[in-house]
Design a protein around this nucleic acid. Sequence first.
DNA 1: TCTGTTATGTTATATTATAACGTAACATAT
DNA 2: ATATGTTACGTTATAATATAACATAACAGA
Lengths: 128, 128
Amino acid sequence: MEPSLTNNQKIVLQALEDSEQPLGAYSILFNIEKKGIKSPQQVYRALDKLIEIGAVHKIESLNSYIACKHKDCKARESTSFLICQECQKVYEVLESDLSDKFVKLSQESNFKYFTHNLEIFGICDLCN
Amino acid sequence: MEPSLTNNQKIVLQALEDSEQPLGAYSILFNIEKKGIKSPQQVYRALDKLIEIGAVHKIESLNSYIACKHKDCKARESTSFLICQECQKVYEVLESDLSDKFVKLSQESNFKYFTHNLEIFGICDLCN
DNA sequence: TCTGTTATGTTATATTATAACGTAACATAT
DNA sequence: ATATGTTACGTTATAATATAACATAACAGA
């Protein structure tokens, strides 16, 4: 079942969905001040929840956030991205065999795999 | 040929080498204040250079840094880590076929691979 | 209605990172 | 040896990212 979003969460999510690029928290805040959101806290709280339910992912190396384009995304914790260094767009990769690969890789070090974060940088189709 | 390090760079690198866990920049600063390092700038500058020559890597999701244990590390840009959620230790993975895998993965989206950052979270051998 | 839980608003502060400026150290070309 | 370019250094200030802490509101279920 779909979790219902609060007003603030909807506003933050909408801001991310309207953006081609990932947005930082303060950039989101700036975009939605006209809608009554006044403090970083409100943004970060909404982001926390949206990330928890998989509607938003964080790009760690950019300290930025994107709306997930996939319905009911399973990437609550593990995420894989292609990040274009030219246009800044982020493409989420959904490859279940990636996790398999990482499980195996981990095992070689007797490491118990839980989650992963993969960020691939390069040039996207459109910019090439 | 080995690039020679300046005094500040040596001090920062030593702090990281002495640590079992990755350290944040301000944590490094705290550790080496007694050696005359007084400002974040000095730490960040040293880190920039150390990262550039491959002696130090940044763990993006932790905003922290580790000394590379490999001689003349080739991971100037692409890095792969196993991060233990129990003891916080970070193990660097050197698998050249990872890059190959990511190149192929990228190609499927007509994306031109440059570099990557992989962070795998789980439990290490010692903590298991 | 009481109570527990979740969301909200708000102020303040912590944490991480860079900008900007002036000076020093040093290599090397004249 | 000195002028010049480059790299490093020291220092102060500030930007950018994220969380703490506290009071209040909204709401569901016992």
